[in-house]
Structures are given as C-alpha cells and as structure tokens.
Design a protein around this nucleic acid. Sequence first.
RNA 1: GCGGAUGUGGCGGAAUUGGCAGACGCGCCAGACUUAGGAUCUGGUAUCUCCGAUGUGCAGGUUCGAUUCCUGUCAUCCGCACCA
Length: 819
Amino acid sequence: MKYDFDLIEKKWQKIWDETGEFKISEDTNKPKYYALEMFPYPSGNLHMGHVRNYSIGDVVARYKKMRGFNVLHPMGWDSFGLPAENAAIKHGTPPAEWTWSNIDNMRSQLKRLGFSYDWDREVATAKPDYYKFTQWMFLKLYQNGLAYKKKSYVNWCPSCQTVLANEQVVNGKCERCKSEVGKKDLEQWFFKITDYAQKLLDDIDKLDGWPDKVRSMQTNWIGRSEGAELQFKLDGSDKTLTVFTTRPDTIYGVSYMVIAPEHPIVDELISGKPQEAECREFIKKVQSQSEIVRSATDTEKEGVFTGTYVINPFSGEKIPLYLANYVFVDYGTGIVMGVPAHDQRDFDFAKKYKLPIRVVISPEDKDIDSENLTEAFAAEGVLMNSDKFTGLNNKEALPKMIAYAEEHGFGEKKINFRLRDWLISRQRYWGAPIPIVYCDKCGTVEIPESQLPVKLPENVKFTGQGKSPLSECPEFVNTTCPKCGGPARRETDTMDTFVCSSWYYMRYCDPHNTEMPFSKEKTDYWMNVDQYIGGVEHAILHLLYARFFTKVLHDLGYIGCDEPFENLLTQGMVLKDGTKMSKSLGNVVSPEEIISKYGADTARLFILFAAPPERDLDWNDTAVEGAYRFLNRVWRAVDDLKDYMTDEKIGGLSEEDKKLRFAVNSAIKKVTENCNRFSFNTAISAIMEMVNSLYSYKEKAKEYNAPVITEAINSLILLLYPFVPHITSELWEVSGHTDKLSTHSWPEYDSSALVVNEIEIVLQINGKIRDKMVISPDLTPDEMKELALKSEKVQSFIEGKQVVKVIAVPKKLINIVVK
RNA sequence: GCGGAUGUGGCGGAAUUGGCAGACGCGCCAGACUUAGGAUCUGGUAUCUCCGAUGUGCAGGUUCGAUUCCUGUCAUCCGCACCA
C-alpha cells in the first residue's frame, strides 16, 4: 500500500468538514483552553508565514484537546483595508466582491492544510453583523469620553488627495503613487488611549507569558518619563511659558529656551517683532520638511530668535526664546529649556548660535569648565553655580528643586508619556463607518445603538481622485438627525482597521449574538486567550490596541478579564536563502506548490521541525524532502506491522522487546514534555528516534511480540497526530481502530518500561573523561566509588598521584580529583 | 544613543534545575538490494600534528566539573530614536 497523501488528506478533510469534527461549545465539566492565531488579511493567497503561524496553532489546539481541554480554536478575516479599495481603483472590482472572493479562496487553502478550526465561529470584520459592533465599540468609547475629534496634523498625499496612515508612508513617500507626503491640518477622530497609558504600562508586569522583547517594545512605546513642568514668565508680560524637563536640576544652566514652530502661541509671540519675517520664513521651511527628515537624529538643529525673552524662575535671569526644528509640538508642552552644558542637543544648538554654555553639574572626581567642553556632560554629579543648591548631588537636588518650585508656585512634578492618542479616522471607503452625524441644530450626534449598523453604501465609484468615496455619495451623506429629525450630514470617515481587530477575539466567544458584541457569560467562560500566536510585527500596534480595548471593556463592566492574552508566542519569519520571501526577489515558495507535491502533512511537519517556533526559519527544499521521507517511513512501518495489532496485554518480553518498549515510552515522555513547552522541533525529533528504534526492532527481533508492537504503533500515531493529522487518522483506521483520533486521549508512558537494570556512567579524572562503566543504577555513591577505583584506565591515570576527592553523582558519573 | 535578542559541525538545530557537547534532520561518504536508481535499507560523518590533544564568538572568574552561572568584551539581527 502506497502513501497517497492527496487521497488521504482530502478524505479526512471531507470527513472533518461533514461531521463538524471541530465544533465546540461551552462545557463546564472540562477546563477550557482558548488557542488563537492572529487572523489574516484576505490578500488572496496564503503565504508560508501563514502556514507556519497556523501550523503552530493547530498543534497547540489538537494537543490541548487530547490533554482533555475544551478547546476553542477559531479563524476569521481582518477584511477591511486599503488593498481592496486599490483593487477597485485598478480593476473596477467592488471592494466587497474582491474581499469575499479572496476569503473564499483562502478559506479553502486553510481547509486544504487541515487546520482544526470551528468554522461555525468564522468572523469577517467587513460584514455588517460584525462592524455593527465595531460601531458599538466606538459609541461606548464616545459615551465615556474616550473618543473625541480634534484638529491635527496628518499625513497627506497631494496626488491621491487623501490622508494616509503612518504605515502607508514609506520613507516619506506615498506607498501607492510615490509622491512626497505632506502634512495637513484636519479634524480627526481619536481614541484616548493616553488615559490608559499608566495602566497599560503597569500591567506589562503581569504578562509573564509574553516574550521580553514584546514587553520591552511596549514599555518603550508608552515611554513614561518623570520630570517637572516649570513656568517661565515672558519678559515684559504677565504670561508664562511652561516647559517640561526631566532635568530640573540643571535649571541654573539654562541659557536659552526653544519652542516648536507649530506651537499655537508662536503667532502671538512674533507678531510685530522685528524678527517676524525671519520667523515666518523659518516656520514655513520647517513645515515643508517631511516627518522623516524632521525627526531624524542627524538632521541639523536649526532655529531663529523670536525677539522675545523669558525669565528663569530660579535665577531671575533673562534668557532668549528661539524657534527650533528639534522640538515637537505634541510632546510635553512643546517648549523646552536649553541647557547646553548638560544635553547634547542643546550643546549642538548653542555652539551653532553662539549661546552661552554654563556648567552647573560637575563629576565628583574632576572639574570641567565651559571653555574646554567638547560635548555635553549628561551624567550624575555635584551641583555648582546653582545658588542654594550648589554642592548637592544632582540626584538629591532634583526632588528638592521640584519641591522648591511647587512651594513658590512656578512648577510641579509631572509625568509624561510618549504614547499619543490613537488617530482612528480614515478618509477611506472600505472600513467601518463612524456612527456619527452632524446636525446644524444639535451639533455632533451619535447614531443610537438600535440603528446600527451604519451600512456602507454599495453604489460607490472608485476613481482614486478627489475626496473620499463616501463623501461623494449623497445618499450616504445626507440623512436625518436622530435627535431632532432635521437634515444632517453623516461622518464620512471610516475607522482604522486596527479598531476592527482590537476586539475580534471576543467575538469568537459568541459570534452569532445579534444584540451584543458578545455576552458576558460566554466571555467569562472562554476569555482570556490562553495562547495567542502571531508575528512580532504586531508587537506594538495591534497588541497594544487590543489591551486597551480589553481594559476599557473591563472598566465598563462588559468583560471580566483586563488583559486579553495570557500567553503570547511570536513566531519567526519564513526565509529563503537568508532573506525574506518576496515577489520582487523571486524567492517565494508557495504553499500550494508544496501541498501538491508533498501534501499538507509534509508541509506542516517540515515547518514545525526545521526550527523552534519563535526563531526565523530558512526554507530548505531538500529538508522538505526529508520530512516527506519520514512520513513515508512511518507509513511503511505501520503498513508492515499492522497485522500484528492485538488486544492482548503485554506479557513476557525478550531483550529486543524491552528495548523497543523503552524507546516507545521514553518517546512518550519526551514528546509530552516538549509539547508542554512548545518545543515542537524536538518533539518531532523524539518521534523520529522512536521510529528508528521501531525499524531496528523490525530488523533485529527474532520473534515479533504483538502487544509490544501494538503499543509502539498506537503511541506513534497518537504522538504524531497533532503535527500531521491526516496520515495519522488514516493509519489509525487501517490499523483497526474505529474510534476518533481527534478526541482520543494523549498517551501516558509506562514508567516500568523506563526502568533499566544497568546504565553506563562516566569516569572522570579531574573533570576529563577517562573511562566508562556499566553498573546497576541502584548503586550507592560509595559503591560507585569503589568500583571506579578498580578501573584499569583510572588506575593508570592516578598512579603515583594523590587522590584528593571523589565525587559520585548517582546514575551519571564519578569524578576523581588527583594531585 | 536607548532597549531586546542571538552567537554551538558543511547546514538547520539539540543538550529542562551546572554532569558524556553535537540528539534529530539535511548534505556528504561507504556498503546492501537492484538491469538501473535521484526508491529503500544498513553503517559512517566536529577539528587536528589522529598512539591524545583541542573544541559551544573572544578574555577572564566561580566550581571537582561550565554551551549552561558571574564579570568584561566583540560581532550579528530586531525594535525605538532630536521625546527635552
């Protein structure tokens, strides 16, 4: 009988599909397990990254199921987004049509790989019954002050006439038309994620099951920094400017102040000043710089004097106020104090504009002076030239100086975050419409929940020119105000697709609920996700937004948990010849090609065997053949031995029988341990070793022991099942079983089969291996020592030397220390 | 600059609390079966001055014993980056 993977795989996929094998519901008699892989964007075809992601997830799901868990393992589609619209512009296909046909294609590809999803729970974010609740989420945020609209500088492509997301700006250029992206001041919707900055930061500590890398990336992204806000009076006015600084201890070293050119107060400051023209020129220049150039570390620091002075609240000194390109309007207060001696950026700026450099902190062990300074001294030290604070260590001085400022009413302690509010509006068609209307009488009015969803119109033209398609669709725009019934205009922006993907894992718990996004009862049973698996590229955006949503829904009482993902596995990339697979490099290996040549089981086995899940994996065609060869080897072994299968209990054993039983049971032990820690590559290698032992038994055993062979074959099939479910299902059947493999329990090893009556131990002299001996594992350390000293080799090595010490580790080794 | 990781044969990788470095697989070499084999089976495969030394990026340290723990250092990759 030949291993006909195509026939077998299609047969079992059909059975699974028709019998609803992987349908799951709540069952309080079993512990639940929620295994989740990041849902794909329906681009049209699966790539190897998907195959890897979902193969890992499928092993986890199938393994946990065999271990007695009630496993939720769903799949869906992150189906809103720009490519659908681009396809519409290019080919005239409506985004919906393009999306649904891509989904159909990719769903069948997933099925062809035999993943154990409960397809009854499939969700697609672009379906009205889903985005109804994305809109519901928006309303909940809006009602609780967490969604707001404000004017903001956004990326603007002048050629496409549209706003772009940061991700769509590549090296300062539009990813589609390659024209230079500018900035535009527009009214935009934001989610107030900054309200949760501290909580999101604090709870990173709880995420023990997440990789350090992701935790530190999120920590950096949130970017908490502690310091103070200090108020500087404007010279000749009663107004003040507030700076944020982490180094109030350097306040006596301030020799100038800088304000961001876009700062709203700038206009007032420069109006009528002799420097006005120069300043306006500078502002124009900075605004024309792209964000990339502007925020690059090596961009030269430039500025102009505003003609205005401010007063240092500590020293009373009058200092000049500059505009400069290195200050950002949206961080801190948009105004920064310049301390050239103790900050490298300020040092560079002061050198260029010949501003005073005054040292106010010096290292403990040496003196530094302003004249000879070649770079800023940013380290710890002792305060000097700092009035009553002189002589204090800067660490002690810092809280004292903040307290002093608070006492005198010109400053306070302040914590700033780098995290910005989340801009969620997009001037795009293929996204969830924001459920808001604008009424001349009532202003901004939310759509009542009962009227959701606000559906996307279908009769829309895609030209890629002019305004967003929705704003040019009068049937959509013109509506009535839900409050007063008068004429009103709909919001024509749609939501960022990351909004849709921030809550999909909750929807899987209760996907057919028409009243609510999910019931508390169902999420209380299933949430949180026990194991989340996906690429590290989502380390910040998606994973942070999902945490934010979970916390908001938790605080509003809709969900019990306050973190969505208990454990996170970030799988490595699939490479070819050391580089990322890409169409432009022409090194793409398509899953379909591999499946048709070797089958889904081989594809899965290779991908799981070639590297540990979190590491990058280099595609290797000959190693794929190796995986295929192994499956053939398994197939032949079972085929050859299946007639020995019996119900008889294990009885008398020959030496060969014992050897095989040892191999089988230690494989069960190893594979179990390896699967528990997701070390699938070593789990597979342990199974390979067991198959090698089985072949060796076939070759060497004088007489075949049917119960021992039965144990071996059954264990082999069961251990291999989570990795390669089709071939094992078939082998389970051909070897005479009538029950379902998918619900069979995971095998347990027989510890008596692992007992041996002799083991080999190592004899070391001074830590170097000199001999080996075979002894009973029960020998005491003293007995072992005695035996070891009798070894001829050992004797020749210790002859004429003094034995200082003998270390005996039971079942392992003996080390004799000599001088 | 800040943060995170990774360095082991020709290659992918293994060694869970310190205890035989290189499991398993790829590749390569040899043998068997065969008209033939790119099928299959069996054996071999770290390096060298190969009778016994050396080897887990490099240099130290702790220990009877270090791929594993500690200190320093180098290299590569990834993320953030003019954030005051």
